[in-house]
Design a protein around this nucleic acid. Structure first.
Length: 441
DNA sequence: CAGAATGATTTCAG
DNA sequence: CTGAAATCATTCTG
């Protein structure tokens, strides 16, 4: 309020020449001379300047009187104009800033997660992603997903009620301030533009609060997502049969354990992996991805500790061998019920007398797997083999045994890639049930 | 419950 | 883009 007198002082003289004021003067003071007008204006200014020194009641009464004064509109216009020129123009430049990129990101994310978009948007991106990630959704998954959706809906509801609350509060506050300013505009120069500006400031303040809300909502959604959709957390071990099938392929293609795309597909199909753990959904097929994961893990872990996998290797090799022998023995169908795709790939071990060797190994392993079929003559070979192994020197029995199966394909660098002639060792007795022969590309 | 096993992801190189 | 290697996080096992 105290800026008015100052304004009056600084511009007092020039104001007389103001068109609006002059017009009013002409209209309202027709007939009086210049001295009278000056007297009039001086009087009003005096009253305004001293209004703050008066008691509240007095000031109120004076205010009312001034409001009703015939010169009031003219004075008010002038004051507004001066204020516009002196104050408002200074910070008039920072209008219409571009939308905050951070806010846009948050908005986009909330939209994508199905929090912000249209109501009942059950097919939100997140849900879609979840559905895609889980492929053929089993009963267990659907339960988890409904839980996820419920939580998401909860977040969504909280977000919307909070947003609504903020908007309501913003509107209330805005109207309140606008009313206040309109009220004040009767006694001090407040232009509509100024009110507009004030509204803008209020909105910006509230939108920054909204941004915080959006941010924490995003965080909540991310946490929810990671909790429910992170595949790592949802790891399920493959069932025994699937592992067996994969292992069988692995050990029968030990020289080049890199299944082709088709082989992977076939394996995945055979394993009937009901994958719930794939997040690389941009892959061609998630089943392939699972098989790839498995082979990747297997290769690295096998290579890291061949000794540890020896028994397993023996077992699968024996199995394959038995199947192979059974093929050669019967000269026909070789499909073992438990090893549907094992037939014929024994050759990948790159051994000329693979049949005998495998059988020996099977016995060596002490596994009773199909032992009856193998025959008693195998046992004698085991002893011979043991003897030979013990003479190789430098290795323990078990490690020496491991040397027979695995490693011929693994060079000193540890790579399979440089393994000698993987494709040339394809078994001649490939059976009808085999997945894909070890063609290595 | 600790440690092993294991499926998935990340990082990096070719 | 693929695979190796390292790592994470979960599940299994004794």
């Amino acid at each position: 309020m105290d800026e008015q007198p100052r304004l009056m002082h600084s511009h007092g003289v020039g104001m007389a020449g103001h068109p609006g004021l002059a017009q009013h003067m002409q209209d309202g003071t027709a007939g009086t001379d210049g001295e009278g007008r000056k007297q009039d204006i001086g009087d009003i200014l005096q009253q305004i300047m001293t209004i703050t020194d008066q008691s509240l009641d007095e000031a109120q009464a004076r205010k009312h009187a001034l409001n009703c004064h015939r010169m009031k509109p003219a004075l008010f216009n002038v004051l507004c104009e001066i204020k516009e020129k002196t104050v408002l123009s200074i910070r008039g430049a920072q209008e219409e800033e571009p939308p905050d990129p951070q806010l846009m990101r948050l908005d986009n994310m909330l939209l994508a997660e199905g929090v912000a978009g249209p109501e009942k948007g059950g097919g939100s991106a997140a849900a879609a992603a979840a559905a895609a990630a889980t492929g053929g959704v089993g009963a267990d998954n659907s339960a988890e997903h409904s839980d996820y959706r419920a939580k998401l809906t909860q977040i969504r509801q909280i977000y919307h009620t909070e947003l609504e609350k903020y908007e309501q509060a913003c509107n209330e506050f805005t109207t309140h301030v606008m009313n206040l300013l309109r009220e004040q505009s009767r006694t001090r120069p407040i232009s509509p533009k100024e009110i507009e500006r004030m509204v803008g400031i209020i909105h910006r303040k509230f939108s920054s609060i909204q941004m915080q809300l959006k941010q924490s909502t995003c965080e909540a959604v991310m946490i929810l997502r990671s909790r429910f959709l992170d595949a790592r957390r949802k790891r399920r071990n493959f069932n025994k049969q699937a592992t067996e099938i994969l292992n069988e392929y692995f050990y029968s293609h030990l020289s080049n354990p890199y299944p082709s795309e088709e082989a992977k597909e076939e394996l995945a199909k055979k394993c009937s992996i009901t994958v719930s753990q794939v997040t690389r959904i941009n892959k061609a097929t998630y089943l392939d991805c699972v098989v790839s994961n498995w082979f990747g893990n297997k290769r690295i872990r096998y290579k890291k500790n061949i000794g540890k996998f020896q028994e397993e290797a023996n077992m699968y090799a024996a199995r394959t061998a038995v199947t192979a022998t059974s093929v050669s023995a019967h000269g026909s169908q070789a499909n073992s019920p438990s090893t549907p795709n094992s037939a014929g790939s024994a050759g990948s071990f790159n051994m000329s007398n693979s049949g005998d060797l495998f059988m020996s190994v099977q016995s060596l392993n002490g596994d009773s797997y199909q032992g009856g079929q193998v025959g008693a003559n195998i046992q004698s070979q085991v002893d011979t083999l043991r003897h030979v192994i013990s003479q190789t020197g430098g290795y323990s029995d078990s490690l020496a045994a491991s040397q027979m199966y695995s490693p011929q394909a693994i060079n000193t660098n540890g790579g399979w890639q440089d393994a000698p002639t993987p494709s040339s060792v394809t078994s001649p007795t490939e059976g009808p049930g085999s997945v894909h022969s070890d063609t290595s590309n």
